[in-house]
Nucleic acid binder design. Structure first.
Lengths: 133, 133
DNA sequence: GTAGGTGCAAACCTTTTGCTAACAG
DNA sequence: CTGTTAGCAAAAGGTTTGCACCTAC
């Protein structure tokens, strides 16, 4: 662990793991007068993904985004098509329970599932209310 | 509809909609001595997406892939981490049934779901068998 | 002194854009 | 003649790489 690597990891903690892209992390650090090179940010993020601190995501843009790996809770994402906010669906809204029996069917067919990746797109509660008015 | 546009659409039909990227479509056409420019391929694909003939996908690479829109069946994808093949989960294996009650919960919370995007990653039946040996 | 990490710039790959020429109605 | 489309090459993003330099043990 070097100062630069700590800085990069810190960004995700400070921003509450807001699904930042590498470029955004870089700009965030520069704007705080923390000198890092872009290359280091990219290399560090790759490293953090390999070490299991970060998870790589994609939301149908041309960018890779990253979030802190939350050891306890797997979650799915909901992307609002109106405001663009990305919600994390955890707890009550977690689809994992519902999926359990489905995953059993899959494995009985010979699929071994290592990773489930679920995304919803649509209107979030806030934007739904706005639209109703 | 111009000759070039037909050609592009044909590629997806001929290849059984094998989740090609734009670059691959271009190379496919060139290799068959069908002269198109890259720009036209990209523009045509965008057009076909807008017109609802193609669906844009991403599988956590740096590329956009496309598949023919199958009007009857929505489906999810299974990506084998061993052989790389992308399976389409339809019919019995479709997770849509299982998800129905979940989607109701979501809408009772005020989310309006326009699009469900589900991907699994793991070992497909073939590779599972190989590994067992 | 050796291994690993950094910074810079250049390269890279996929995708988009500007512009001119060709074409169709 | 007018609007649309194609081709080319250049530009634009995001990401990766090569290499020299620096640092820490």
């Amino acid at each position: 662990m070097t100062p630069q690597r700590e800085q990069v990891l810190k960004v995700f903690i400070e921003t509450n793991s807001e699904h930042l892209g590498a470029e955004e992390v870089y700009r965030y650090l520069i704007s705080r007068k923390l000198n890092v090179s872009k290359a280091t940010v990219y290399r560090t993020i790759d490293l953090l993904v390999e070490l299991g601190f970060l998870r790589r995501l994609q939301f149908d843009e041309g960018v890779f985004r990253y979030e802190l790996v939350d050891k306890e809770e797997k979650h799915s994402h909901f992307i609002c098509t109106s405001c663009g906010k990305i919600y994390e669906l955890k707890g009550e809204l977690s689809p994992e329970n519902v999926m359990r029996e489905y995953l059993q069917l899959m494995s009985s067919k010979g699929y071994i599932i290592e990773e489930v990746d679920l995304k919803f797109r649509g209107l979030c509660p806030k934007c739904t209310k706005k639209k109703k008015k």
